[in-house]
Design a protein around this nucleic acid. Structure first.
Length: 524
DNA sequence: CTAGGGTTAG
């Protein structure tokens, strides 16, 4: 009888996949007096979570059990820990478990509960609980602790403490340390830990490479990617996404293309992350057509897919295409709801296309229709838009109406507009603000001095230059780069040290018919 | 039933 019932339950759960059948089975078990049998309850709960994705019904079954065991607690807590939205439930159920002992937690449960903890007090109290229950010698638990601490702000000291006390450090705990150091921007230490690792696998490489790209060390990220391939580690989707991001930021189209080929040949799942990263890479490297091609091929266009495509068009000043993509995005069969990034791209596109009214109306739409609180980035775009169009009264109204302190981009955009339209009075105001916000940026001082020059305020010009010299403030030189034959050539404004500079000036001269060094900065 | 890695933004 028992054996037959087991088979019946397993068979039903394997074949059916609806709540109705589950409830029938539940009723049948109740009539047999097995409603509270742990084995069946566990099977039903797992089925609810895994097949039906119905967490609340799983919890309902659980709540009716008079004395759930550790397994059953773990099943529900694992399910809660799988999604950030239900992390609080995982923690509160765990606290309930501690109060209602028995059952006692086992070591399997701690990684899940730790994963659900995002505050230092809960991680620390869990740590205490782990030590108290004697599970602090399990490598899995130690690793989870290292990871949890490393994700907390200022948690690296604790992470390191746990890590150093581990008797058997494995790849996973090393990787958690690498990503922890990378997260706080300490790429150097991340690299050191990585080099000390006794063995490395794909996720370890990914932790380091993503650490580089997230801290703006794109060239270093690329070098590591090359080394990884060289050492016969096969990059996966995650690696490729990071590497493509680095390609986009450095304009390495050749490598980007190579990666595209690698993806095509080696990665079975063409996931949306990879597709979006390809779109972004092609867009940033100037291959707009290729970007679009990849975008269209993506069968599951998500928010980021649309955003990336819009940004590509905005970057290239193709405002009409950017707007068309946006309209497709919101109107499509299963319309995607735009977010704040979408509108940054859209506003940018309008700015580069000179579409003032349209840009303004998109800003309004963002606030009114989508209830998105404008960020400083949006204000930056809007001021840029209005400034370029010479609509300074409105621009100043926007600045005054901002809920936050205007930043360098806001004043910089305004100053830019002023220069174009000869509004020297307002330019002085904006330049002063810039110097005030960031006195160490020599570029702002130079701009202020030039505005004073235009106004004929020669004493002020002298003052600004004196301050600049005293502070030893320097302007960061304008820089651009171009890739030729898989090699990136970098040019700084008025810098002659690049070996190709002479050649370049020659070509330039033959095109424009005269030698103009400023052109080097504009059209390398 | 366990632990590490991901794209877009002025």
């Amino acid at each position: 009888m028992e054996r037959n019932l087991n088979e019946l339950v397993l068979e039903t759960l394997r074949k059916r996949s609806e709540l109705k059948q589950l409830k029938q089975l539940q009723g049948y078990l109740t009539t047999l007096g097995h409603a509270h049998t742990h084995f069946y309850a566990f099977k039903l709960i797992r089925f609810c979570v895994l097949t039906l994705s119905n967490l609340s019904y799983a919890r309902l079954i659980f709540d009716h059990l008079p004395s759930p065991n550790t397994h059953l607690f773990t099943a529900i807590i694992t399910a809660y820990a799988a999604h950030p939205a239900t992390h609080p439930s995982a923690l509160s159920l765990f606290r309930h478990m501690l109060r209602s002992q028995p059952p006692r937690p086992n070591h399997f449960i701690f990684p899940h509960v730790l994963k659900s903890s995002h505050h230092s007090f809960s991680v620390q109290s869990l740590h205490a609980q782990i030590v108290k229950s004697g599970f602090h010698h399990f490598p899995v638990v130690q690793t989870a602790l290292v990871h949890s601490y490393s994700k907390l702000l200022g948690g690296m000291d604790n992470a390191k403490k746990v890590f150093d006390e581990m008797s058997h450090r494995n790849v996973v705990s090393f990787t958690a340390m690498v990503s922890g150091f990378a997260r706080v921007g300490d790429v150097e230490t991340a690299v050191r830990v990585f080099n000390e690792m006794p063995e490395r696998d794909v996720p370890s490489w990914n932790a380091l490479i993503s650490g580089c790209t997230q801290n703006g060390a794109f060239t270093q990220g690329i070098e590591l990617f090359r080394k990884m391939v060289w050492e016969c580690n096969r990059p996966n989707g995650v690696t490729v996404v990071c590497a493509l991001s680095a390609c986009g930021h450095t304009g390495m189209l050749q490598l980007g293309r190579w990666i595209h080929g690698y993806v095509y040949k080696n990665l079975f799942v063409f996931d949306s992350f990879v597709s979006n990263a390809l779109v972004d890479m092609y867009g940033k490297c100037g291959s707009l057509g290729k970007a679009r091609e990849v975008f269209e091929m993506n069968p599951e266009k998500g928010l980021t897919s649309w955003n990336s495509m819009i940004n590509c068009f905005a970057l290239h000043g193709q405002s009409d295409s950017a707007i068309a993509i946006f309209e497709q995005m919101v109107e499509g069969r299963d319309g995607v709801r735009p977010d704040e990034v979408t509108f940054i791209g859209l506003l940018n596109a309008c700015t580069h296309g000179g579409l003032v009214e349209k840009g303004y109306s998109y800003f309004e739409m963002m606030v009114r229709e989508y209830g998105i609180e404008p960020q400083i980035e949006h204000y930056g775009c809007l001021i840029d838009l209005l400034g370029r169009a010479g609509r300074f009264d409105e621009a100043m109204d926007v600045v005054k109406g901002m809920s936050m302190k205007p930043d360098e981009v806001v004043w910089g955009s305004l100053l830019n507009g002023c220069k174009v339209h000869g509004r020297t009075d307002l330019a002085e105001f904006a330049a002063k603000k810039l110097v005030e916000i960031n006195p160490h940026n020599g570029g702002y001082g130079i701009m202020l001095a030039s505005v004073y020059g235009e106004l004929g305020k020669w004493d002020e010009v002298k003052n600004v230059w004196r301050t600049l010299k005293q502070q030893k403030s320097y302007k960061v030189p304008g820089c651009s780069w171009i890739e030729v034959d898989d090699q990136v050539h970098q040019f700084y404004s008025l810098d002659k040290s690049n070996t190709k500079t002479e050649e370049l000036y020659g070509v330039l001269e033959s095109i424009v018919g005269f030698r103009n060094e400023v052109m080097v900065e504009l059209y390398p």
